[in-house]
């Protein structure tokens, strides 16, 4: 039996930022979280726009799109806080 996923912390925007690609409603949830990260100075407007473009498509990975468009992906966007990539 699979373990139940941990409950989402509504006060932590990154919890929604890392919602798995493909999960129902995840595109919108990631974009909403990205807006919070933008407000907190954690991501730039360019990266926020990537999340906006992916917001209606739960299967679209914003990290993949950012890399395709050669936008530096901020650390906060990466699972487990990896080093920024481009």
């Amino acid at each position: 039996m699979m373990a139940a996923p941990p409950p989402i912390d509504h006060d932590d925007p990154t919890a929604f930022l890392h919602m798995p690609v493909g999960k129902n409603g995840s595109g919108a949830a990631r974009y909403a979280a990205a807006m919070q990260c933008y407000n907190n100075g954690l991501i730039c407007a360019e990266m926020l726009e990537i999340y906006r473009r992916c917001s209606k498509f739960d299967l679209e990975d914003p990290i993949d799109l950012a890399r395709y468009e050669e936008i530096t992906v901020p650390a906060v966007c990466l699972p487990n806080q990896q080093e920024p990539t481009s």
Binding site: I8, H10, P13, F16, M19, G25, A28, A29, Y31, A32, A33, M35, Q36, Y38, N39, R52, S55, K56
Partner: peptide
């Protein structure tokens, strides 16, 4: 339905917190 963490306008993408305030 359910919007887990915010309301997002499907037209241009304005984002509102669940308490109705504008997130951005």
């Amino acid at each position: 339905g359910t919007c887990p963490n915010a309301l997002i306008c499907p037209f241009h993408g304005w984002v509102y917190n669940l308490d109705g305030s504008l997130r951005g």
